[in-house]
């Protein structure tokens, strides 16, 4: 009996100590969305259960290891105890009830993170190896995600190639991005700041570097930024003929993940000095990088592969690049001496 009392007291002491230790260890990043508070609430409940269960097993185990150690020279067996059905039933039923309670809490908090605001703003997200781009309701595209504070946003996400996953640790929520299907990511940012979205699903070679800025601003700052973007986009669109500045935008959206413009070696050939140069191909032949070659390489990436590189799966045309945009891209490439 004495042993049970000691162990009981130790469990009662260790449980809150563990919980206080865990909750003051800054285990989570800052909470930057309404949803993150719900997730952290569930996390705290989980930690309470973890603290108690840890104490419940560890205390009697170490107590036994210390107190019930074999004495030197003792070669006899311990007292013969086969089991106790009442105890077994107890430690089956109580965990069963606990589990059901936690499953209920899990379902409840999941529901809370999914509450939809009918006035939520919709932003389209395009993921591709290895970059993100964001299409705003006002008709322009950016490689940064700007979000207004305290406004629910639904990201309608789709991938151009393989599976990616949208994760901003400060928002807590994560959602995979699939090819051929749109998945939703619903978030209400509530802290102004600069964060990163990083791809959380292994998506090939440069997966580690697939990230983009997420900038949460006040509603007024957001509106100002949108107005700037719209004006810039309209000005750019109004320029007739192939245009290098437009091409650069397209480059940032679709091409930058693999092609460098400063001559550094990437997953795919650099564009610096490309235009007009003679390119050696995988099959041993050579070709001059003129409009026709570049257009063909954009439309059919596997047709002529540069020596030392593999044909990639990404096809810009499937991702939505138009003929006019290809002309813009070529204009941009011409500027890269």
């Amino acid at each position: 009996m004495r042993h049970f009392v000691i162990v009981g007291v130790l469990v009662a002491i260790l449980t809150p100590l563990t919980y206080i230790g865990l909750s003051s260890a800054h285990m989570m990043p800052v909470e930057a969305s309404a949803q993150s508070q719900i997730v952290d609430q569930m996390w705290n409940w989980d930690m309470m259960a973890v603290s108690f269960l840890l104490a419940l097993i560890v205390v009697p185990m170490f107590y036994s290891l210390i107190v019930f150690r074999r004495k030197k020279g003792d070669t006899t067996d311990a007292e013969h105890v086969e089991g106790n059905t009442k105890l077994e039933v107890t430690w089956t039923i109580i965990p069963l009830i606990t589990v059901l309670v936690f499953a209920y809490l899990g379902a409840y908090t999941l529901g809370e993170t999914r509450i939809a605001d009918p006035n939520a703003m919709v932003i389209k997200v395009r993921a591709q190896q290895w970059s993100w781009s964001f299409e705003y309701p006002d008709g322009f595209t950016s490689t940064d995600l700007h979000l207004p504070k305290d406004q629910q946003v639904v990201l309608k996400m789709q991938s151009s190639d393989v599976i990616h996953s949208f994760w901003v640790p400060e928002f807590r929520i994560k959602q995979d991005v699939l090819p051929g299907r749109v998945t939703d990511y619903r978030i209400t940012p509530d802290m102004i700041g600069s964060y990163k979205v990083r791809c959380a699903e292994l998506c090939g070679t440069s997966h580690a570097y697939m990230e983009a800025n997420v900038i949460v601003t006040s509603q007024a700052d957001y509106k100002a930024w949108v107005a700037d973007q719209v004006a810039a986009a309209q000005a750019l669109a109004a320029i007739p003929g192939p245009n290098a500045a437009r091409g650069e935008k397209i480059y940032e959206q679709y091409c930058r993940a693999c092609h460098s413009i400063d001559g550094s070696k990437g997953q795919s050939p650099t564009w610096r000095g490309l235009y007009g140069s003679t390119v050696e191909l995988n099959d041993g032949s050579a070709v001059v990088a003129d409009d026709a070659y570049i257009t063909e390489s954009i439309k059919q990436p596997a047709a002529k592969v540069v020596k030392g590189f593999d044909a990639m799966g990404f096809n810009p045309v499937n991702a939505g690049v138009t003929d006019a945009q290809i002309a813009d891209l070529i204009a941009f490439i011409q500027t890269l001496k």
Partner: peptide
């Protein structure tokens, strides 16, 4: 998934109860 905790818990509790008042060698 959470249900798996129940039979797993039975194992842990039974192990601890086996250690309890034994003559433990290590």
């Amino acid at each position: 998934t959470l249900l798996v905790a129940v039979p797993t818990g039975v194992k842990f509790f039974s192990w601890v109860a086996t250690l309890w008042k034994g003559k433990i060698e290590t």
